[in-house]
């Protein structure tokens, strides 16, 4: 894990926000909204999966 990754603190509801992914990619040739929509939905599911384990 890089130092940058270690210091990054995701907002509630996210693990890897789209804006972080976009910074890494430096832009994409296609329509960003199409990709972003599902990225964010699945990222939220990952977040909910993780927090599920402390909400017993």
């Amino acid at each position: 894990m890089s130092e940058k990754e270690k210091k990054f603190v995701p907002e509630p509801g996210t693990c890897t926000p789209w804006k972080v992914k976009m910074e890494e990619l430096g832009g994409i040739p296609g329509n960003e909204e199409i990709v972003k929509k599902d990225w964010e939905r699945l990222d939220e599911t990952a977040y909910n999966f993780l927090w599920f384990w402390v909400h017993r």
């Binding site: 603190v9 995701p10 509630p12 993780l50 927090w51 384990w53 402390v54």
Partner: peptide, 16 residues
């Protein structure tokens, strides 16, 4: 406290 989601993923989940 510093990074709860990170801690759950990398420390708590493997521990439980």
């Amino acid at each position: 406290i510093a990074n709860p989601t990170e801690w759950i993923a990398t420390t708590y989940l493997p521990r439980i």
